[in-house]
Design a binder for these strands. Sequence first.
DNA 1: ATGGTAGCGCTGCTA
Length: 259
Amino acid sequence: MKLATWNVNSLRARLGRVEEWLAANEPDVLVMQETKCDDAAFPAGAFKLLGYDTVHHGNGRWNGVAIASRIGLEEIRAGFSGEDAPSIEECRIVQARCGELRVFSVYVPNGRVVDSEFYVAKLAFLKRLREELETTGDPDEPIAVCGDFNVAPEDRDVWDIAAFEGATHVTEPERAAVRALEEWGLSDALRSLHPDEVGPFSWWDYRAGNFHKGYGMRIDLALVSRPLRERLVAAYVDRDARKGKLPSDHAPVVVEFSD
DNA sequence: ATGGTAGCGCTGCTA
């Protein structure tokens, strides 16, 4: 089984590349972030032609998350459970059962500036995600929480930690919030299989030729529960998807499990 | 070279 997560940075702008990538890579499930469209504009038909059922949760210009699955799509939930959901989630989370898997697509707020209201909201979102797992999940079930976390878990997950002095994505509270998800019962799939590597990065700023200089970050994560961790056979970034004409600024992170 | 790009949508915000 193959599962991928990709911040596509506008599905309207990227649909051709996403279709191409799906046809070439044939993941069983692809979760997407930053679709930047509303539900009515989501191109469900294009995915259906490739064999994927989809759920989309978006409301226009910003954010927007989706799941495409060719192994079933049930028990769909857009947003967090409960009444407080709309105020905090901003079309940044959707989940569904895909065959035996419970899959989340999450787009954690950027945070912008440390200690800003946006940074506070980022930490609150991550805390709420942990609560969602606690109240609705079981770490002994096969669960994959995937997406753009906007957090680099360790110093080696950025090209130069010195360049991040005072910046978001690398602060201890952000990292602790991601660790809290792991402590609930999830493993960072890519880091589990590549414990001694730098990165590999999954995002590079469009500006200043950063991709070509290798100035990236590993902020797109696939966090998987123990039953999946035990079946994990591959985890990698498809860096080629960041190349060529009009790429997303993120590359897909792919994880593979034995059947 | 001391800024750089990209998307959305029409002005400046977001990343």
